[in-house]
Simulated scan of single mutants.
Amino acid sequence: MDVLISGAGVAGPALAFWLSRFGISATVVERAPSLRTGGQAVDFRGEAHLSVLRRMGLLDAVRAAATTPRDMVFRGVDGRERARLPASFTAGEVEVLRGDLSRLLHDASAADAEYVFGDWVTALHDDGAGVDVEFARGRPRRFDFVVGADGMRSGVRRLTFPDYRPRFQGYYFALWPADGDDRDLTCAPGVLSAPGWVLFKSPVPPELLPDELIAPDVYFDSISQVRMPSVSSGRVTLLGDAGYGSTLGGMGTGLAVVSAYVLAGELAAGGDAFARYEALVGPYARGCQGNPGPFLAPGTRLGMWVRDRVFGFLDKAPVFARMDLRAATAIKLPEYARVR
């Protein structure tokens, strides 16, 4: 069995790792010329996330690359501290830079999977027995299955579900390289900023803006969610943010790693693998989705006051502070027979 994976961020290399363990050939195509470095801190929380990393033999390596979690300090425009979001609430059990995690997953799968950088999928032709794939630069190839693991702006999703658009959640964010403490935040109604990033409320829908704001080292996007009746069509399916994305939602990385394990195991089991994958991962993924905009940058002064009071309770009410664990652990991971 030959599987094409579009995207070499987190979900794609994690899927490539598990496919090889189940005796399935994987090819990963990535539009960027190399692995993306740096990026924001991402985290794993709860036994479901940690269990998959443990089964991969990567938990110790992830912990070795972990960052030191810090409180997020919210300040008014006058510089005075208004509230503090505890690190215990934001960082999960282990926090790591996205680029470091991507490198670990790539290195763990590169010996068994084919990686093609600087190319991307331009057309898919599913004839029921396989998928003929056209690329921007490489020669056409045929695969048994295709998986879009290419993020919120998934090209595979656009080709497979051309009428679908992610749901705009009323906020935008921008990221850029900067010196300074990115956990020291300045806030006003509907706006939150720190060195290297800004989050702001806006009624302008994404359709009236370009997909990305192109500027040196700046990334600009909407806060959106991907909620689809089905993430599969024929021999093509979606994984991670491409199928269940929730921009800055907080649990997308753990969800991607868990979903990759399930998808690979179901493909190895044969039969109607995509249906079983969706039945298990779909409810779990939707429970992990959220909109951080109103939580972090409420649009009114009253909303900011309420936010500040809620943050003050988190350290005093650990049960409330760890409610996210209910969503992160709300899946029973199957045991799949591994080839190696």
Rank of each mutant, 00 (worst) to 15 (best):
D2R: 15
D2F: 03
V3Q: 05
L4E: 02
I5P: 03
A8F: 01
A8L: 03
P13M: 06
L15C: 05
A16M: 07
F17Q: 03
G23P: 10
G23Y: 10
I24F: 08
A26T: 08
T27K: 09
V28N: 03
V29E: 04
E30A: 07
R31T: 10
P33E: 06
R36L: 11
T37R: 14
T37Q: 13
G39S: 09
A41Y: 03
H49I: 10
H49F: 10
L50E: 12
L53C: 04
M56H: 11
L58C: 06
A61G: 02
V62M: 04
A66L: 00
P69W: 03
R70I: 04
R70E: 02
M72R: 06
V77K: 11
V77C: 04
D78F: 00
R80M: 12
P86Y: 08
P86S: 09
F89H: 13
A91C: 00
L97S: 00
R98I: 04
L101E: 05
R103T: 12
R103I: 02
L105R: 05
A108K: 05
A110E: 11
A110Y: 01
D112G: 03
D112Y: 01
A113V: 06
E114S: 10
Y115R: 02
Y115G: 02
D119C: 04
W120K: 05
A123Y: 06
L124C: 09
L124I: 08
G128N: 11
A136R: 09
R142K: 00
D144N: 08
D144C: 00
F145A: 13
V146I: 08
A149C: 06
D150W: 10
G151F: 09
M152D: 02
R153D: 13
R158G: 11
D163V: 11
Q169C: 15
G170I: 11
A174N: 02
L175K: 00
W176K: 02
W176Y: 15
D181I: 01
D182S: 12
R183W: 01
T186H: 06
A188W: 01
V191N: 11
S193E: 15
A194G: 11
A194Q: 08
P195F: 06
G196I: 08
V198L: 12
L199Q: 02
P205L: 01
E207N: 02
E207T: 12
L209T: 07
E212G: 09
E212H: 14
L213K: 03
I214K: 14
Y219D: 05
F220V: 12
D221N: 13
I223Y: 00
R227A: 10
M228S: 05
P229L: 03
S230F: 02
V231T: 14
G234M: 06
D241N: 12
G245I: 11
G245M: 12
L248M: 15
G249T: 12
G249P: 13
G249H: 13
G250D: 10
G254D: 01
L255E: 12
V257N: 07
S259Q: 08
S259E: 10
V262I: 14
L267W: 07
L267Q: 08
E278D: 00
L280G: 04
G282F: 01
P283A: 03
P292K: 15
G293T: 15
G293C: 14
L296Q: 14
M304L: 15
W305S: 14
V306C: 13
G312V: 13
F313M: 15
D315E: 15
A317N: 14
V319R: 15
R326V: 14
R326K: 15
A328E: 07
T329P: 00
I331H: 04
P334L: 07
Y336I: 08
R340M: 05
